[in-house]
């Protein structure tokens, strides 16, 4: 599978990245090289092999449904780029 320039731009949009137009060709080339390399996985026979998502399998780590200690609101908002009345502010989305 060879990834095209259009596909890279499409995936970048999905990932909310606006690629620098000047560098986009070199960038696409590097991504195509990496994907071409990882295509070697297709040489491995994995018929009937279970996938692994975690190397150390733990069953669900549960705790009692009791409120714990949490950050207070001012501390949680302290790093926000913009906030008002105890809430995070974002650019207007509804006119």
């Amino acid at each position: 599978m060879k990834i095209t320039r259009e596909e890279v731009l499409h995936v970048a949009r999905l990932a909310r990245l606006k690629l620098d137009v000047a560098g986009v060709d070199a960038f696409c080339g590097q991504i195509a090289d990496i994907l071409a390399y990882v295509d070697k996985l297709s040489q491995v026979d994995t018929t009937g092999v279970e996938p692994t998502s975690h190397a150390i399998s733990l069953t669900n780590a549960l705790r009692g449904d009791e409120p714990g200690r949490h950050l207070d609101r001012d501390l949680a908002l302290a790093n926000a780029p913009d906030h008002e009345n105890g809430t995070f502010l974002v650019p207007r989305i509804i006119d």
């Binding site: 599978m1 996985l41 279970e50 996938p51 692994t52």
Partner: peptide, 13 residues
């Protein structure tokens, strides 16, 4: 399937 699932199976191997 071609990438993530395949890689996770190779991880098992």
């Amino acid at each position: 399937d071609a990438y993530y699932k395949k890689a996770s199976q190779v991880r098992t191997l």
